[in-house]
């Protein structure tokens, strides 16, 4: 796939990747009450890496991602599963939402919660899953 990347695409993807990643984190965090959430945010992040993959090649994309996509998938699955466990310790059923709002000076209230952990898990699962498949297809091509 190396021949596909034009100069414009390569330059653009360098700028777009960080923007898309930032946007994906924004989507992830606003997702509880407004449109967004882990799934769509994970897809946005994966789009950024996929764009980079089209512009460059699979090897460089792998280097750029800080971990193997399969590990991301595993960590995400683990986070999403374990997000259901804390309620058990206080005698509630699995996946009962628990909230720990904290005041951060200058930023306002931040709501830490088990749904947030779950959403981060979904984010990682989607990012890892999509990148595993896309990288596998790209490497088969090369």
């Amino acid at each position: 796939m190396t021949t596909m990347g034009s100069l414009i695409l390569r330059t653009a993807s360098r700028f777009l990747l960080p923007l898309l990643l930032l946007f994906s984190v924004f989507m992830l965090l606003r997702g509880h009450d407004e449109p967004g959430g882990g799934f769509i945010a994970g897809l946005v992040a994966a789009t950024g890496f996929a764009l980079y993959l089209f512009a460059f090649d699979a090897g460089r994309t792998r280097e750029l991602m800080w971990a193997d996509p399969r590990v991301l998938f595993g960590l995400g699955l683990l986070a999403a599963t374990l997000a259901g466990v804390p309620p058990i310790l206080v005698g509630e059923p699995f996946f009962t939402a628990m909230w720990w709002p904290i005041e951060v000076p200058g930023l306002g209230e931040i709501k830490l919660s088990t749904p947030l952990v779950f959403d981060i898990g979904v984010y990682l699962v989607v990012l890892g899953g999509v990148m595993t498949i896309v990288l596998a297809l790209a490497e088969a091509e090369e």
């Binding site: 399969r70 590990v71 595993g74 699955l77 683990l78 599963t81 374990l82 259901g84 059923p93 699995f94």
Partner: peptide, 19 residues
């Protein structure tokens, strides 16, 4: 009731982390 579902999920994700 939920343990037989959670345990394989945890085991599966751990074995992905240590793939």
């Amino acid at each position: 009731v939920a343990l037989p579902i959670l345990i394989p999920f945890v085991a599966g994700s751990l074995s992905l982390v240590f793939f």
